[in-house]
Amino acid sequence: MTNLAPILILTISIITDLRNRKILNIVTLPAILIALAFHTITTGLDGFLFSGQGFLVGLGLLLIPFLMGGIGAGDVKLLAAIGALKGTVFVLYTGIYAGIIGGLIAIFILVKQRKLGFTLKHMLFSAVFLKGTKGSLQVPADKGNTLSIPYAVSIAIGAILTFLLETNL
């Protein structure tokens, strides 16, 4: 499948994630179904397996962070859609790059808000005493100060890096 479909899906997802903090099911779910159908029609069982494995890897990469409360379901479905469209290797690299970019964005935001030191101490305390925050970077207990980033941006940057390096994959 051409790169146009994932680029369109990522662009729409970035816009909705930045504006409303949501990645829409009307974008991700049809993308998954269309990718499965396209790959199955064009290359049969091999295409179905290519798309299905990519979907499962994309889903699996963010499933645990989602279950721990650190990431939204839309982000999981977006990465799964990218996997269904582009396959296992592409989504694996995209997920790795997205994790690195997401971490850098989180550090940048914490530094800008002057909360990096407090957050690192809080994370160390939580790890030492096995008292977690369900996987999210929560600064104080009130919801207004919780660190939250639009992860569609990280996924899109990860996909762009993978597109650029795709010839080497």
Rank of each mutant, 00 (worst) to 15 (best):
N20I: 10
L24E: 11
L29K: 05
P30Y: 03
L33E: 00
A35M: 04
L36S: 04
F38R: 05
F38E: 10
H39W: 11
T40S: 13
D46N: 15
S51F: 08
G52Y: 07
Q53M: 15
F55A: 06
L59G: 08
L59T: 07
G60I: 07
L61M: 15
L61I: 15
I64M: 14
L67G: 06
G72Q: 08
D75R: 01
V76H: 02
K77Y: 05
K77M: 11
L79P: 01
A80S: 08
A80T: 00
A84T: 03
A84Y: 07
L85A: 13
K86R: 15
G87E: 01
G87P: 04
G87F: 05
Y93S: 07
T94R: 01
G95M: 07
G95R: 04
Y97C: 04
A98S: 14
G102R: 00
G103M: 08
G103I: 07
L110P: 07
R114G: 11
G117F: 14
F118Q: 12
T119K: 01
K121V: 04
F125L: 12
A127W: 08
F129C: 09
L130Q: 13
T133Y: 11
T133S: 15
K134T: 09
S136G: 12
S136F: 09
L137Q: 02
P140M: 08
A141I: 14
D142I: 12
G144R: 14
